[in-house]
């Protein structure tokens, strides 16, 4: 417990800026993972417990692609495309076999795959921590705002996250594909009866969710150390985000992710031992007060 540090920080603009920025980058990475999770749940009614593994694989794909080409763009592309394709294959071959409410089987299939992915990563990339290093393009002097230091890469991450959030929101509400996806989440049988290939749609949504998680992994690679099992902690956090924001809501995922990011950074200052506990506490409060989450409709 160290509430004094928290108060001192609130009194200093430099500290506030630094903390809020790092809260936002945690929030943006969480958002990219959580929004895929919430999208997949909204349409397929399946909670993808392997979603953290996609994040992990994205980070490792980026690591390898960056090592081979030296280009950060190529690294991000490898992360996104690799996990996106994996998502499509995973949905078509495995997850599609356990649709229809049997939660036990869904959990088991995902549990099996988490074990396999974690071990494959250990076999291919080794058990030790890896780090990708900051790309040269971002080796810039940090921005100074009100005395607080903001590294250029952090700014890039935040912009990326916000752009993707805006794009997703627009895409789902305005485009034909977005409308089809929303329709399928309400009544898949009717959508299918109207001549739309729902199987293909499901694979696309799952692949896209995997792509976002992989992209998050790729974006996280320069600022996080890579290890097998890194996916599970972000999975739990993105669950908390979706519970807080409400399953199926993109705005909820964004707000929930940023809230969790801020709780994490300020919690580390004030309650270093209980940072994780604060997130769960917050989740429990939301669950008791509004079981469907802050922006959730009654689908729970």
């Amino acid at each position: 417990m160290n509430p004094d540090a928290l108060l001192t920080c609130f009194a200093s603009s430099a500290c506030l800026v630094t903390q809020v920025t790092s809260g936002f980058i945690i929030g943006m990475l969480l958002f990219l993972v959580a929004v895929g999770l919430t999208l997949i749940f909204g349409v397929l009614k399946v909670v993808n417990f392997t979603h953290g593994a996609f994040y992990m694989l994205g980070a490792y794909f980026a690591f390898t692609a960056y090592g081979l080409t030296g280009s950060f763009v190529a690294a991000l592309a490898a992360a996104a495309v690799g996990t996106g394709l994996l998502g499509v294959v995973f949905e078509r071959w495995f997850i599609s076999r356990v649709y229809g409410g049997n939660v036990l089987m869904q959990l088991l299939v995902c549990y099996g795959f988490i074990l396999i992915f974690d071990d494959v990563v250990r076999i291919v990339w080794g058990a030790e921590f890896r780090s990708m290093g900051m790309p040269d393009a971002f080796m810039l002097p940090p921005f100074i705002v009100a005395g607080g230091v903001i590294p250029a890469y952090y700014l890039f991450l935040i912009v990326c996250g916000l752009v993707i959030a805006a794009g997703l929101g627009m895409g789902l509400s305005r485009t034909r594909l977005g409308k089809t996806i929303r329709a399928a989440s309400h009544n898949p049988d009717m959508v299918s009866a109207l001549g739309i290939n729902t199987g293909l749609l499901y694979a696309c949504v799952f692949g896209f969710g995997g792509l976002l998680a992989g992209l998050a992994g790729g974006l996280a690679a320069p600022v996080r150390s890579l290890t097998s099992g890194m996916g599970f902690s972000i999975l739990i956090e993105s669950f908390i985000v979706t519970v807080i924001g409400g399953m199926g809501s993109i705005l909820g995922a964004l707000v929930g992710a940023i809230l969790i990011g801020l709780i994490r950074t300020f919690g580390t200052l004030g309650f270093p031992l209980f940072t994780e506990g604060l997130m769960y506490l917050f989740m429990a409060v939301v669950l008791i007060a509004k079981p469907t989450g802050l922006f959730g409709k009654d689908i729970a």
Partner: peptide
């Protein structure tokens, strides 16, 4: 226990991870 199916599954999981993080950090 008020929560349905998949919600129940992962909120119980979240509480378990809370205990785990308490154990590791305390």
């Amino acid at each position: 226990v008020r929560l349905k199916e998949i919600y129940f599954a992962f909120v119980t999981l979240a509480f378990q991870m809370l205990l785990h993080s308490l154990i590791v950090s305390w």
